[in-house]
């Protein structure tokens, strides 16, 4: 498993013998999968919008599909970054937009109604996963109003702040005296 990273090590540098546990959690992996899924889907929408609108019987909406594709890609990239939580919430919002657009195409005269229904089902499923992942990857920073330890006694100057300032003054006087004399 560590074969590759071990081969490229300079000779004599430590190599992994036994791996320790990773702190990556299943929700992190889910976020990653969703991010890549979004990027894949987004690229398809962006490059082949016509295929999408045809399949859904929504010809003429190619520009919207392209824009949605771009949105999918950006939210996907964000879900892969350290700000994955924001990316996942962006995806949840995007799922809502997708559903709204699909619903608008669900008219009785659309011969591809069936496909739209299927797509809606898919969007619903993904939305649930997006929501789950967003809930489970909440940043663990303490909220602004959290109780915190304060450090009012940690000056770092064993003789006190005043002594440190005094000493600085002395040093400066010493230096300037050295220059003039």
């Amino acid at each position: 498993m560590f074969h590759f990273s071990n081969i490229v090590r300079s000779k004599g540098d430590p190599k992994i013998v036994e791996g320790g546990p990773s702190l990556k959690q299943p929700p992190d992996q889910l976020a990653r999968a969703l991010g890549w899924l979004g990027i894949g889907l987004g690229i398809t929408e962006f490059l082949a919008p016509r295929r999408v609108t045809e399949a859904l019987g929504m010809e003429g909406r190619e520009t919207l599909v392209r824009a949605f594709g771009l949105r999918e890609i950006l939210a996907g990239v964000m879900s892969l970054s350290v700000d994955r939580n924001a990316g996942l919430w962006a995806r949840v919002g995007g799922d809502g937009l997708d559903a709204a657009a699909l619903l608008s195409g669900l008219t009785s005269d659309n011969p591809k109604k069936g496909n739209i229904a299927l797509a809606l089902l898919m969007v619903g499923g993904i939305a649930m996963l997006d929501y789950r992942a967003a809930q489970d990857t909440k940043p663990r920073r303490p909220p602004p109003n959290a109780r915190r330890k304060l450090y009012p006694n940690r000056s770092g100057f064993p003789k006190g702040v005043q002594a440190a300032k005094g000493r600085a003054k002395e040093m400066i006087q010493h230096k300037t005296a050295g220059v003039t004399s």
Partner: peptide
């Protein structure tokens, strides 16, 4: 020996690695 090893974004692990040698 034990060492903190980088495995990717936000993935640092405490692995067992070979001891360093004089090179």
């Amino acid at each position: 020996m034990k060492a903190l090893v980088w495995h990717g974004k936000e993935d640092i692990r405490c692995d067992t690695v070979t001891d360093p040698e004089i090179q």
